[in-house]
Design a protein around this nucleic acid. Structure first.
Length: 554
RNA sequence: GCGCUCAUAGCUCAGCUGGAUAGAGCAACGGACUUCUAAUCCGUAGGUCGUAGGUUCGAAUCCUCCUGAGCGCGCCA
């Protein structure tokens, strides 16, 4: 579908007007950066531009004079009126036929809610990537909700998006995992062992050991320790990653691929990428270790990639991993990390600069901490000693819709308190149900019209939509694409939720004050139902970006 | 000490590349159900945008200082 892009039309008209004026006056300069936006106040028209104020320097004259000159030259069938107002804004008033066309498009085709803003650019969103040493906890929930929503937003905004989970299945922590399970197994087999202080203390470790005990009996205890530990490790890794994948599924997260860190060692990518950087002169040896020269790219200090004991650091495999991402053709990779990893950003971006894919973009979204709050009381959230709160528990407690919505409610750069008691409420003060109810209302009134055989035909009689209230709602629907692109550009899914809340609010108010079904007036009924369907479609599409369902009845 | 993030209504928070009168929800108070779902709606009240400067036609938004909160500064991941 071709969406009539009035903003673009206005922009080309304004560009031409200023360009002509510059040439006409024999001045130097070109069209400045300016904006065309929908004003907050509808008295200021349907669109407004600050172009005259931005051009004041070029013309060396008052913005109002420029604005007046532009207004005189502007003519277009869609523009009912344009006016210059202090201190130099130009306000455009648009023919209502434009808005009636918007309603029709929004009511009939979901393509209306998609954009080509991203121009099919290949983007990877890598998120969650929690160490496979235990179940996901509520902190990971925010990362998962953000990453998944962002991916869906980018896809709807025209990017070619892939989602990936980087599984840290190599290194010390994996040895530790294997050992933890092994010791628990030995305990179950009645051996006299002590569980290490730095082992993984969670219940789930014991559960895994129990399963091994059932499957193997005492056989593992009779094997050499290394062999037994390896069996424990493999079983543990599989169980835990399966568990994580299952949690994400329950959380309505679409994770397309799971990428193994170990695979980068198995195929030699880790030493190969270090060699690659060494040839470029960015890797050197000191005190028996290999270092990456991140200071050349503005980092505080150089970073170890291979320790003097021969072990590669996590950083080393991460370099190989990001090189791999770009080698797979991704133009942008967005890493979603916890804010506590911010100190790591500089060294990785340095390494990526050193690799030298100048046309590629590396971005990190640092997700701030989340606190659980219940009835005003803060729930403790230590990740130590296995006392963390599992994401599965939260999903089960408040439901996946409320969980997803609440996690995406706040800007990711700000800390936020997840209010369990509010999320659990099935009543008015819970925003997620307020929005969902907006959608359910649309479906409900449609059903009512059909059940009662009220005559109507969607997409007809739209010229009846001419009240201020109706036009405001249509403008809000039209604004969807703008909000979507903002959310994509700024990587801020929370904008969607706020938008939906406002749209739902406008619709609830309209619904309450206007009779949707009118047996005597087929045209009016048709027009209002079409508007309702357009709103319902906007809500459904918006909620889907947040991973929240849009039920037909509640 | 250095670095990252945050500070907006009583509470929780929005406020796109700087734009016109700073918004919403909750809480408070007052109203609306013989009605297409009242899971809704209408109204009232609530602000020195942490402090002090700077940049300009114009600042909650950008820059600097200060105050306060969270997080991070390993041959850990």
């Amino acid at each position: 579908m071709r969406r009539l892009n009035l903003k673009q039309i206005l922009q080309s008209l304004l560009d031409k007007a200023i360009d002509d004026m510059i040439k006409n006056d024999g001045l130097e300069g070109s069209v400045p950066e300016y904006t065309i936006e929908v004003p907050n106040n509808s008295d200021h028209g349907d669109f407004a531009s600050n172009i005259a104020m931005k051009s004041a320097k070029i013309f060396r004259t008052k913005p109002m004079d420029i604005a007046n000159r532009i207004v005189e030259t502007l003519k277009h069938p869609m523009i009912k009126k344009s006016e210059a107002v202090m201190p130099g804004f130009i306000n455009f008033f648009i023919d209502s036929g434009f808005y009636h066309d918007i309603v029709k498009q929004a009511a009939t085709d979901d393509a209306f809610f998609k954009s080509d803003y991203g121009q099919k650019r290949k983007v990877m969103v890598e998120f969650v990537s929690a160490n496979p040493t235990g179940p996901l906890h509520v902190g990971h929930g925010r990362n998962a909700a953000y990453g998944d929503s962002l991916s869906k937003i980018l896809a709807a905004a025209g990017f070619d998006v892939t989602t990936e989970y980087y599984v840290n299945d190599a290194g010390n922590q994996m040895n530790n995992l294997g050992k933890s399970i092994y010791i628990r197994y030995m305990e179950l087999s009645g051996k006299d062992v002590t569980f290490p202080e730095d082992g993984y203390h969670g219940e789930y470790i014991i559960d895994i050991a129990k399963e091994l005990k059932e499957e193997y009996g005492d056989k593992i205890a009779e094997m050499p320790e290394a062999e037994g530990t390896d069996i424990c490790f493999k079983k543990g890794l599989k169980d835990i990653t399966d568990n994580i994948a299952n949690t994400l599924k329950n959380f309505k997260v679409d994770m397309e691929t799971y990428f193994s860190e170990q695979s980068l060692y198995d195929n030699g990518d880790v030493p190969a990428s270090l060699e690659y950087l060494k040839e470029k002169g960015f890797v050197f040896e000191n005190e028996g270790a290999l270092w990456f020269k991140s200071t050349e790219f503005g980092d505080d200090k150089d970073r170890v990639v291979k320790r003097s004991n021969g072990d590669y650091t996590y950083f080393a495999s991460d370099i190989a991993y990001h090189k791999n991402k770009f080698d797979r053709g991704f133009m942008t990779t967005i890493d979603v990390w916890g804010a506590d990893h911010h100190g790591y950003v500089k060294r990785l971006s340095s390494a990526i600069d050193a690799i030298g894919y100048e046309d590629r973009e590396f971005a990190v979204s640092l997700i701030q901490m989340v606190n659980l709050v219940n009835a005003g009381e803060r729930v403790s959230m230590s990740t130590r000693a296995g006392s963390f709160i599992e994401l599965d528990w939260l999903i089960n407690e408040v439901g996946h819709d409320a969980a997803r919505y609440f996690y995406s409610m706040r800007d990711y750069e700000a800390q936020f308190d997840f209010d369990i008691s509010l999320a659990k409420k099935r009543e008015s003060d819970n925003p997620v149900f307020y929005i969902q109810y907006g959608h359910a209302r649309v479906q409900s009134v449609l059903k009512k019209a059909q059940d009662d055989s009220v005559p109507f035909e969607l997409c007809t009689g739209l010229e009846k939509l001419n009240s201020k209230e109706e036009l405001e709602i249509i403008k809000k629907v039209y604004d969807y694409i703008n909000v979507l692109e903002q959310a994509a550009r700024n990587r801020q899914p929370h904008r969607i939720g706020y938008y939906l809340q406002e749209l739902a609010s406008m619709f609830h108010s309209y619904y309450f004050n206007n009779k949707m079904l009118n047996e005597q007036d087929k045209e009016l009924t048709s027009a209002r139902l079409t508007l309702a369907v357009a709103v319902g479609n906007a809500i459904r599409n918006g909620l889907s970006l947040l991973g929240v369902s849009a039920p037909d009845r509640m």
